[in-house]
């Protein structure tokens, strides 16, 4: 019995967010949605659970608790990553993979953000994932090869195609 990684998500529930979490839920990854707007994320959870009855999803407003429980933390660049939030999760993100997810259009913006993120989370493994919103293709990049491989494997299990690993 393979134990699947629990993934915590921080970001606005836009189209990209919805596509990714639905596919990961379908691949049986336990998911934790972090939000101050519980109603909106609960709606998304209910919608996914109606399509995938055994989806393992929970919504919480406590980023630290969710990131403590998670094996992998996914941050979407559609939301402002406040320094205070990163400081709050820093202690529980040690040695964890932190994925910074953005659309291909935000490539440059995200690169800058990832550098900042890595300096704010020096003991985490920061990985960038770029998604082409029109398809299922992803580009994965980062400094830790093992983390790149694991993130690629997770998204491939969820039905995405990894076009490049940098």
């Amino acid at each position: 019995m393979a134990v699947k990684q629990t993934i915590a998500f921080i970001g606005a529930a836009d189209e990209l967010y919805t596509v990714l979490v639905k596919k990961l839920a379908q691949a049986n990854y336990p998911l934790l949605f972090i939000s101050n707007d519980g109603y909106r994320y609960q709606q998304l959870t209910d919608q996914i659970k109606s399509d995938i009855p055994n989806a393992d999803i929970e919504t919480t407003d406590c980023a630290k608790e969710a990131c403590w429980e998670a094996d992998i933390i996914a941050l979407f660049d559609n939301t402002t990553l406040e320094k205070e939030l990163i400081e709050r999760i820093s202690a529980v993100a040690t040695q964890k993979i932190v994925i910074c997810i953005s659309t291909s259009d935000n490539h440059n913006l995200s690169s800058i953000q990832t550098k900042d993120l890595q300096s704010m989370l020096p003991n985490s493994k920061v990985i960038q994932v770029f998604h082409d919103i029109s398809g299922l293709e992803l580009l994965v990049s980062g400094a830790d090869q093992e983390a790149i491989e694991l993130v690629s494997e997770i998204f491939e299990n969820a039905g995405f195609i990894i076009t490049e690993k940098v």
Binding site: M1, A2, V3, E65, W68, E69, V92, T94, Q95, K96
Partner: peptide
């Protein structure tokens, strides 16, 4: 030493290791 450990909360009835992994 603290920088090398990964803190993890594990809920009751969840697994941290599965047979075959």
């Amino acid at each position: 030493c603290k920088t090398l450990f990964q803190p993890k909360k594990l809920r009751k009835k969840r697994f941290i290791l599965g047979e075959g992994d």
